[in-house]
Amino acid sequence: MVNRNSLLIFILTVGVFGILNTEMGVIGILPDIAEHFNVSISKAGWLVSFFALAVALSGPTLPLLFSGINRKNVMLLVLCVFLVGNIVSIYTSNFNVLLIARGIQGLFHPIYCSLAFSVAAASVSREGAPKAVSRVFIGVSAGMVVGVPVVSFITSVTFLQTGMSFFAAVNALVLIATWLYVPSMPVNEKLHYGSQLKVLKKSITWFSVVAVILLNASVIGVYSYLAEYLKTVTNMSPNIISLTLFIYGGANIIGNIVAGRLLTQRAMKSVASFPFVLGAVYIILFFTGQFTVPMAIVTFIWGILAGVGANINQYLLSTAAPEAPDFANGLFLSSCNIGATFGAAMGGLFITEMGIQYVVMAGILSLVLSVAAIFLRNYKHVPAQQLSR
């Protein structure tokens, strides 16, 4: 049973990697896409923003609509959609077709990811759920930070279509593994849509949504401009910047492992202290950002905290609405994407008004606001005996 659960979680982890890799992997090849389709780099950027918008729109709805269907069948459907979309992306010569294919993939993205979190949590005991979910989050982190350089490297030594084939290859392997090794998972107790939507009447749900938006904004609002910060403020060479970004990505994966233990043993304390710890790191970053070695060390610590923060975000919403896990995970994905959009915009505003070195203020401001949301969420709704955990 343990081996079966481990295999299931591994397949889910790789599956989430394939989904996130499809979403984020194009970032490293946007110049190649712009050249291939003869469009501007800003227009090529629509491939990222349009995908994220589709995720934000479908997050609260499609996971809810598919919540009563056999979970294996739903995962197979989503993986087929992604594989077909990948194949279309490889062979189309029309940018608008590529954009539409990406938009359709974005709509189905929350279905698989919300299921992955729910299935992983349900495969173990209630106490072990945070650790199981944290393992799936390794796929999220890897898809966001490992897929970009991998696809970029493949494209640089071969062709654009070869690089984009990496998306299809990963999704095809997961599709086969899901078909062969994931057991049928019928929904024995189908939750009515109305009963799941009732979680929106609870104030804890909305405090959790606001907290997730602000916490994700605090990370993405600074991370989005990290490469430019390292170039302008730290004066790093392109190769050292790439290495530093890789350090951040590796640390992010470590953070997922750490988060599993923290949320299993000291959940409430971890949630409450997170904004203060990340805020302290941002303050140190602000004062040491011009020095290469301290900046690399801070980036490593920051990457670990970012991995922990992603798990905290999922924990906040999954525990706020445990009676509707798929819907809660859909809300989590939408909230994260809204937070990413809000954070990137706020970071850009600070850069425009004050300069790149002040981008950390966007993160600190988001963290300050998140403290209020977390306080209202935890200390107004969580039973007193849980606060000591």
Rank of each mutant, 00 (worst) to 15 (best):
Tyr181Pro: 00
Tyr181Leu: 14
Tyr181Val: 04
Tyr181Met: 12
Val182Asp: 01
Val182Gly: 04
Val182Pro: 07
Ser184Thr: 14
Met185Ala: 09
Met185Trp: 07
Met185Gln: 13
Met185Ile: 15
Val187Leu: 11
Lys190Gln: 15
Leu191Val: 13
Tyr193Pro: 02
Gly194Asp: 01
Gln196Thr: 05
Gln196Tyr: 03
Leu197Thr: 00
Leu197Lys: 07
Lys198Ala: 12
Leu200Met: 15
Lys201Arg: 12
Lys201Ala: 14
Lys202His: 15
Lys202Ile: 03
Ser203Asp: 02
Ile204Ala: 00
Ile204Pro: 00
Ile204Met: 03
Thr205Asn: 07
Ser208Asp: 04
Ser208Thr: 07
Val212Leu: 10
Leu215Ser: 08
Asn216Gly: 05
Ala217Lys: 01
Ala217His: 02
Ser218Cys: 11
Ser218Met: 04
Val219Glu: 02
Val219Asp: 01
Gly221His: 01
Gly221Glu: 00
Val222Met: 00
Val222Thr: 11
Ser224Pro: 04
Ser224Tyr: 00
Ser224Phe: 00
Leu226Phe: 10
Leu226Thr: 09
Ala227Glu: 13
Ala227Asp: 05
Tyr229Gln: 06
Leu230Ser: 09
Lys231Thr: 13
Thr232Ala: 08
Val233Thr: 13
Val233Glu: 09
Thr234Ser: 15
Asn235Ser: 15
Met236Val: 10
Ser237Tyr: 06
Ser237Val: 06
Pro238Glu: 03
Asn239Pro: 03
Asn239Thr: 15
Ile240Leu: 15
Ser242Arg: 02
Leu243Ser: 08
Leu245His: 09
Ile247Gln: 02
Ile247Trp: 01
Ile247Pro: 07
Tyr248Asn: 01
Tyr248Cys: 05
Gly249Ser: 11
Gly249Val: 12
Gly250Arg: 05
Gly250Val: 14
Ala251Asp: 03
Ile254Asp: 05
Gly255Trp: 11
Asn256Met: 09
Val258Glu: 06
Leu262His: 04
Leu263Asn: 03
Thr264Pro: 04
Thr264Met: 13
Thr264Trp: 06
Gln265Leu: 11
Gln265Ile: 11
